[in-house]
Structures are given as structure tokens and as C-alpha cells.
């Protein structure tokens, strides 16, 4: 039991169909204040998920758009609480997804490093220890004391990746993050991810790319309509994914 980093037991999660909420005024004017049955307002985004991921394992998750891949990562990261079942996680988790937002525009790059570090639960001292490494890796040292709002999109992405990837999590969740910045930085970030994958960290990767998953993962699961449909054998997940595309 104790060699599990992540164990997911019979997890189900409901998700609202109308994500962006409603307007009370609009509802009032259009007179649609009627009670909508629960099954019309919610759909089951994840259903009967069972996964046991060992420490140090690298697991891929593959599936068509809308199959619940990102939602699953968020459940593991604790962002969404499951409606049924339980998730047990051992260690510090970092979710890396669509990098760069979450920065404060008016603070400098350096201040944002501190802020992001404390958001992920690091104390001031360990943040200071990591700071130089992050700045070096980002390659934007000359702009690090300028406010983020003066940064280009590429610079923000570089800084975002540099911070997250230097936090050295026990569990790293990657959501389609292999395409940041220019060619050179992309190579650098790919190398960094390889390094993390080969290290002690437990890694869960969500991707559409067969080549990435094939080269990195011990196991790959296929996800379809919120259910896991393959047994973890990479080849069967790829087969399932190919058949889904047709």
C-alpha cells in the first residue's frame, strides 16, 4: 500500500453543463426560473475511475477531447473534490497546465517567483534558494525586475515553466505542456521534463501525442467518456486512441 503515490478508488465526478453560471436578471426577464432536473444541469465527467499509481511511475493518459483527461488531473491535484469515491495522494503535487497565467501583472518577475512559490506551499527561505536557478533557467534575467505586464507572451511562458519545473514536486501532473516558447526553449523544457520523468518523481502525463507518451511512460491508459477503458498496456491505449479517431 505504501508504495502508492496516488490511489484513486471508484471516483465519480459531476460537472455542470452550463459552466459559466447564469445571469439572475436574464433568467428573470426570460422567465426561465423553473426548476431544471439535476440530470439536465449536471453530467458525469468521470465515472468509476480506479487507478493505483506507484511512486516513481510514469503514467500517460490518452483520450479524445472531452473525455475527462484534464478533469482527472484536477481531481488528482485536489482542485475538484470527487462526488463519489476517494483519492489518496502522498507527497507534494504540482500541476503544470497551459503555463503562464496566474501571474500578477503589476508585480515584477522576481516578485511573482516569490508569490508562486508561496502558493505552492514553500517558505521564504526555500524560495530564495530556488530563485537564482529559476531566473537562470528562464533566460530572461535582464527583465526579471520589470513588471510582468511588460513581458511578451513568450517571456511569460518561459518564466512560468521555469518556476513550476524548479519546484521539484513529488508528483508532477503534466497537461499538454510540450509547446512553450521558441524552438530553443522548447528543447530546453523538453529536456527538463525528461529529467523530471527520469528522476524520483511520480509523473502523470496527459497528451494527444503518441510519440511523447511512448518515449516516456511505463503505462498508458485510455480514457473515454470519463471511464478508463484500457488496462494500462501502452499499445492497447494507442490502439484505442486510433480507433476513436476514425
Amino acid at each position: 500500500m505504501n508504495d502508492s503515490a496516488i490511489s484513486i478508488n471508484d471516483v465519480a465526478l459531476d460537472y455542470p453543463r452550463k459552466k459559466k453560471g447564469v445571469g439572475l436578471l436574464r433568467e428573470f426577464i426570460t422567465g426561465r426560473f423553473k426548476k431544471v432536473p439535476r440530470k439536465d444541469r449536471w453530467f458525469r465527467a468521470l465515472n468509476g475511475i480506479n487507478l493505483d499509481i506507484k511512486k516513481g511511475e510514469v503514467v500517460g493518459i490518452m483520450g479524445p477531447n472531452g473525455s475527462g483527461k484534464s478533469t482527472l488531473l484536477r481531481v488528482i491535484a485536489g482542485i475538484y473534490a470527487p462526488d463519489e469515491g476517494s483519492v489518496e495522494v502522498e507527497g507534494r503535487i504540482t500541476l503544470l497546465a497551459g503555463i503562464g497565467t496566474g501571474f500578477n501583472q503589476d508585480l515584477t518577475g522576481r516578485e511573482n517567483i516569490k508569490l508562486t512559490g508561496s502558493i505552492f506551499g514553500f517558505d521564504s527561505k526555500s524560495i530564495s534558494d530556488m530563485e537564482e536557478g529559476i531566473i537562470d533557467f528562464s533566460g530572461i534575467r535582464e527583465f526579471i525586475d520589470d513588471p510582468i505586464r511588460t513581458y511578451s507572451a513568450g517571456m511569460r511562458a518561459r518564466l512560468g515553466f521555469a518556476i513550476i519545473s524548479n519546484l521539484e514536486p513529488d508528483i508532477l501532473l503534466l497537461d499538454e505542456v510540450m509547446s512553450v516558447g521558441d524552438h530553443e526553449f522548447r528543447k530546453k523544457s523538453r529536456a527538463r521534463i525528461d529529467e523530471l520523468v527520469q528522476g524520483d518523481a511520480t509523473v502523470v502525463i496527459v497528451s494527444h501525442s503518441k510519440s511523447i507518451l511512448k518515449s516516456m511512460c511505463d503505462k498508458v491508459y485510455g480514457l473515454h467518456n470519463g471511464e478508463i477503458v484500457t488496462d494500462g498496456e501502452p499499445e492497447s491505449a494507442f490502439e484505442f486512441y486510433e480507433s476513436e479517431k476514425e
Binding site: R74, A77, G78, I79, A97
Partner: peptide, 9 residues
């Protein structure tokens, strides 16, 4: 929202 969807606290 962007922070909440990124990390739990």
C-alpha cells in the same frame, strides 16, 4: 479562477 484551477489550497 486561473489560480484555483491550477493548484489547491
Amino acid at each position: 479562477s486561473s489560480l484555483i484551477q491550477r493548484v489547491y489550497f
